[in-house]
Amino acid sequence: MVDIAAPTAALLERTRSQFDAATHALLLRKRPAWLLAIMRILFGLVVFGWTATMAVDVGSLLGSDALVPLEFASQDRWNWFTLESTGAAWVAIGVLLIASVAITLGWRPTAWLVVTFVLLVAVQRRNPMILNSGDVLLRNFALILAFMPTGAALSVDRWRRHGRGALWTAPDVAPWGLRLIQLQLCVVYFFAFWSKGGDLWHNGTAVSTVFRIDDITRFGSPGWLTTNVALIGLFTWGTLAIELALTTLLWARRLRPVLIGLGFLLHFFIDVFVLVGFFGPLMMIGLLSFADADWLERRIAARRATPQPA
């Protein structure tokens, strides 16, 4: 009779130990806060841009006499804040502008991110006819960023607590909130890839069709590009390949710089040719969450150590 109790217990113990170590590295091992600060600043600027461009069209898109009347505002959800008049829409837009500035500057960003989420939901539910994926991503990022210490560096909060000199230093912070935004990003890429099951994506011509949908083009694509079978095939299958790679291979540390670069390139080209609003800038902010915070810290430290000319 072979006694398997002891080896089994050892295996279980080893597995548990490895799981604990992996969990610790993933969620708890502290890293410099620079990345979170940079993401917060860029996100604040995007919220400012989103709100400022919406402010121009408050009367037409959100007001009492807007294109979509109040009774058709999305009301099948929890309505914790309803914009029932032009004045209410203006108040929401005004507070969103204040929130975007506070987030960018790092003045109590966690609280302002929660306020931003609530107000974005309210504003976007007022007129569901005008929303795209970027608008939904904007509010999701607002909520997820609230789970991160985004004000730990490059912020008014840090300046007030530790003085002006502290602005050029960053504490180490637990990265558990960062994992959520990385997960959200990978989910976007995976289901964008997964849903592209049509024949035009399979036969490599989908991008030509996209370029010819006049009502959503931004800077029109040149005719020689739209009709070039080889280039269109490269762009179509390249899009699928990059989306799949960004879902899976981003987690491989060595491949990250290349993949982040490819992701930026993908969104740059989409933004040039297609009207996608704030989707591209937001996805680029999400890609930054995969950048190497330790590498960034070393670069900043090296720059600080370099003697400046008198």
Partner: peptide, 15 residues
């Protein structure tokens, strides 16, 4: 219901 939505089908299944 709280507004945290997910739908990432872009140009799918075909443009």
């Amino acid at each position: 219901k709280a507004g945290f939505k997910q739908n990432w089908s872009v140009f799918s299944p075909n443009p």
